[in-house]
Write a protein that binds this DNA or RNA. Sequence first.
DNA 1: TCATTTTTAATTGTATACAATTGAATTATA
DNA 2: TATAATTCAATTGTATACAATTAAAAATGA
Lengths: 143, 143
Amino acid sequence: MDNIDLLTIENQLCFPLYVCSKEIIKKYKPYLDKLGLTYTQYITMMVLWEEKEINVKSLGDKLYLDSGTLTPLLKKLENKQYIKRNKSSKDERKLIISITPKGEELKILAKDIPTSIGKCLNLTKKESVDLYKILYKILNKIN
Amino acid sequence: MDNIDLLTIENQLCFPLYVCSKEIIKKYKPYLDKLGLTYTQYITMMVLWEEKEINVKSLGDKLYLDSGTLTPLLKKLENKQYIKRNKSSKDERKLIISITPKGEELKILAKDIPTSIGKCLNLTKKESVDLYKILYKILNKIN
DNA sequence: TCATTTTTAATTGTATACAATTGAATTATA
DNA sequence: TATAATTCAATTGTATACAATTAAAAATGA
């Protein structure tokens, strides 16, 4: 096939990836609204449910986001009292993000979200595993 | 596994989808910069390379974007003289987007982009096909 | 026909994303 | 150790995204 014929929407791989990402994130909305979180805030809380404490740079490395996105987002989570923001005493450049008890409680309220989203994707076990592997293969290659 | 244990980044499918989408779009940037396009503007031009003429609603249906995103984006593409925006005479509610000769020329300059991006994803033929099928299965189910 | 409903694009407001820059703090090195 | 280079979070500016609303035009139906 001539290269120029590849320039159609239906021949793209990135386009359905981009659309799936957005459309799935929309499916989270009714569940996340109940918790007062956006999707980006939700994945941020997910890191904190595991780590309890992390600085902005490390958080950004995990989430593939930079301080330009995280700084205002973390201020919003602090306003909602789900996290605290404190300068590290060891390294004054670092801002330590830590989870609050109110932030911990959120996890219980969120516990059924992955299952609910999983159902509306309607994938077989094999498809889920294949998709997961391919996505992480791309991620490992791309950076 | 208990539902609550699913609330980790590594157990998510949407998260790597969302990250892959963003990271691949970043890979387009050096190529698209040469054309003066963003990724969203690029997929918009891709529709116009096929359709020549389309109204905002139909364009939005194809791209999964609404007028809130498309209206300002289309005004930028018009400023760059890649498209024209004209009210339909048959139905005054509709705005017809049409491609200009300068917009057509862009396609030639863009012709090697899909191949270049394909290389940096480094997927086997089977992986590409599997990924494509799974993504469209999700898209068909989700709407 | 004529009021009601629907469709369409634009607008408004909020929330990302990210490139580039800034300034403070730390680390590396001559 | 004094200077240069690096790291980190914040800021600035641009470009999406999308929910909700608005206003004009077209379609519907009593």
